[in-house]
Amino acid sequence: MNLNISRLLLAGMIVLACQSAHALEPYEFPDEQTRLRFQELTYELRCPKCQNQNIADSNAPIAKDLRQEVHRLLEEGKRDDEIVYYLVERYGDFIRYRPPFSLNTALLWLTPIVLVVVGVGVALWLGRRRKVTSNGADDLSPEEEERLARILRAQDRTFE
């Protein structure tokens, strides 16, 4: 009885694990390495229609077409970068989840670095300013000490 339940659970888990869309298409590969390359490529290419899914996970017809295209190009013996270039030629850098550095993507790549530099700069500047003001408060010259005492005395008198 227990064995049956665990078998059922196992079967359920296997079904869930196979939910990825391309698991539904029976692609055949000459070897394990090509299968892995197919997996990697389809995980790194973005579906043009659904935007925030890769073509491996999307059920959109265009994603299916692109999976088929990647498979076809793999069968033709194309290299990974050739396959990516082939698709970029048609759909633009948009379909790459890792866009190359260019004028268009400079903002995307450089903003984090700029923000970190600005943040560190502001933190250093604030830290230095605090030190300067606290030093200044402690370091009154003898004349200033005397003047301060005089002002305080004068004030005490007015309140009497």
């Binding site: 043009p48 935007q51 970029v88 030629e89 048609r90 759909y91 633009g92 948009f94």
Partner: peptide, 9 residues
């Protein structure tokens, strides 16, 4: 429109 792709060609 973020759904609109640039024309690669």
């Amino acid at each position: 429109d973020p759904n609109e792709l640039q024309l690669a060609r």
